[in-house]
Design a protein around this nucleic acid. Structure first.
Lengths: 375, 375
DNA sequence: CTGAAAGCGCTTACAG
DNA sequence: CTGAAAGCGCTTACAG
């Protein structure tokens, strides 16, 4: 707080002159000061190694290693001397060396296709939780729906010899994953399937989700129902398929638009659908696109649900504070994440090699964004 | 899609019997099948090493290394033989060995205190983007507002000898960071300051944000203004200080409550404040707590802004679709993140050692969650 | 239970 | 420009 009080003295000179993204302006708005460096040098260089500890404790490096890792018992006079030496020298083992020796790292890699999407974020959170408890550290990579970043990260994870890989594949899935698999590193795919038959897969039943979302609207007498999806993303394609099934079963004509999985795309897709025809309902295939669609409906003064009913797929944390609270098909994210970790661990611990595919049904949560169409 | 069609055949048997979190039920809801394993063994074991490549290309390992890293030019007959051998053997260098030899990894560690908070998620995204472009890989750790996880991850990053650390410290900040700093690994703190004077710090001007949020409400004739914060989180404490400054400058009595930085806590804090007195306005110190507060206001039928006006600090992506769209003090997240990466790189590349502190002002964005108090 | 020694798979001065 | 050799800092059979 002391620092803060000082920092705030001449703060907040905005005066409306702030322009988002203007880097030049940043110089003016920010204050930059050199903090005192208190004499301590960042003492690079002379790092202490296991040999130094051994010497100081009058034991062999092997013994130090053994107390460090607990790989074998060490008798009392030695043990304590080692511990003290470690403490006195502030020794921290170099994992780079340990990893090389052991030919593995205590990490599992998690590749996520969009870290800003709350759906993935919730997944990651659950995965990290579970893995952490089991003493695995998580190396999280954001592939940004990009094949190139996915390849680069997969390459790195393979080179780094992680214990296992958990991935929500960016499309097109599959090819780049072989390198990892060939190294004998187990992979489990979540949210979206992966082509390689050696990988486990945990997905929601997306075509069912799309179908049920649509059927729910049809049951409320809607007929002109649009769909916002993303032809480039496998989950959305499946949801679209479910939507189309339901529509054709009811002899209604489907109309869908590409929302590119993002907020902005969802907005554009909504615009396009609205332009083309007089919709009374919308199925939106993911939570980010739902935001875009809602923004457009609001901007046009089309009230939800009276004028346009909406069913979203995904149940993000904000679904209830939106006006009206969203009726959704929710994936059991937490349980799916736990399953993902369990599958990976099973492979790690039992050496299982036959691939599993687990499909979770979604749950319909009725809130207030759908009403019966007034005929 | 083929796989999907099959998967969906008997999908979606929910029938209302699904209970969130019931693990037992999971067995019934999910279908698990063994996928074909197509004969390929996960050929563990016989990994190919640089020596194998060298042998096949009739060159020395040193030469292979040189074409791999580009550390020195390699003449044509050799170069091509090496490339072919690499390709034929599907060789991928073992980074564990490379790292050990070089005594560093091409990774920077990013520690974030809550990965489910869109504020951090946006930050992480921007950091990852910038770092990736510069060819650094990001090791992301979720500390969960927990000193223990923070310590464990910091320990790991130190042992792993990452190039640099970017951290939004969980409180209490500081102590655990010394190990990293002592190793000569640069650290830059974001969102919240870190105690060690060797670290760079990039923060928003939080007391100013709290003050301006409050002044804005006071200017709209509000007098009974509550504050939802988190005494355990430095940013929130600063925002509270700003709030208190503004209140006492206007001779109004402050009333604040602890929302523990989460949705649930925000809800409880709102309940508590509402119970204690007849508020007409609320300042909420972060976006997650804002959700909780809004849920409570909605549940009680207290309309925003007519009955209770709200100013939130943080401008998450959902601020505009909420009803009413939120008036907020927004941090320039993207620019802050870019600054963070720039500071780290500067240390990495120029070897700068004097610490910097950069403070960004927040921007007031007026939307519709505040109205003039009707006297 | 402890120590001496080999080795994990690379990279990089050092010669040539 | 290329190769032989040393070495990064650990761990782990192998003796004792």
């Amino acid at each position: 707080m002391v620092t803060y009080a000082g920092a705030a003295v001449n703060g907040g000179r905005l005066d409306g002159c702030l322009e988002e993204g203007t880097v030049v302006a940043m110089q003016d708005e920010t204050r930059e000061t050199a903090a005192p460096t208190d004499g301590r040098r960042p003492d690079t260089g002379a790092t202490v190694r296991i040999g130094d500890v051994a010497q100081r404790a009058h034991v062999s490096p092997a013994t130090v290693s053994r107390v460090l890792t607990g790989s074998a018992p060490v008798k009392e006079p030695y043990r304590e001397r080692v511990l003290r030496a470690i403490d006195e020298l502030d020794y921290r083992p170099n994992l780079l060396a340990r990893n090389l020796r052991r030919q593995k790292v205590g990490m599992i890699g998690v590749l996520v296709s969009d870290i800003e999407n709350p759906h993935f974020t919730a997944m990651v959170r659950a995965v990290e939780d579970a893995a952490y408890r089991l003493d695995y550290r998580v190396l999280l990579c954001n592939t940004d729906e990009t094949a190139e970043k996915q390849r680069a990260y997969l390459e790195m994870l393979a080179a780094e010899r992680v214990l296992g890989v958990i991935i929500s594949p960016s499309n097109p899935a599959g090819k780049e994953i072989e390198g990892v698999l060939n190294l004998g590193i187990p992979v489990v795919a979540f949210d979206r399937p992966v082509d390689d038959p050696r990988a486990d897969v945990v997905v929601a039943d997306n075509v069912d989700a799309g179908r049920r979302a649509t059927e729910y609207l049809i049951a409320a007498a809607h007929e002109r129902i649009g769909f916002i999806g993303d032809p480039g993303v496998e989950t959305c394609v499946a949801r679209l398929a479910g939507y189309e099934e339901a529509m054709s079963a009811a002899v209604l004509s489907p109309r869908s638009s590409d929302g590119r999985s993002r907020i902005g795309g969802g907005a554009e897709a909504a615009e396009a659908l609205l332009r083309d025809g007089d919709l009374t309902a919308l199925v939106v295939a993911n939570n980010l696109m739902t935001i875009g669609a809602l923004e457009v409906l609001r901007a046009r003064g089309l009230r939800v649900p009276e004028r346009v009913s909406v069913v979203a797929i995904d149940d993000p944390f904000w679904a209830q504070i939106v006006e009206p609270p969203l009726t959704v098909l929710a994936q059991p994210v937490r349980r799916m994440a736990e399953r993902v970790v369990a599958l990976l661990l099973e492979r790690l611990e039992t050496g299982r090699t036959d691939a599993r595919r687990v499909v979770f049904p979604c749950e319909l949560i009725e809130r207030a964004s759908v009403c019966r169409r007034v005929v």
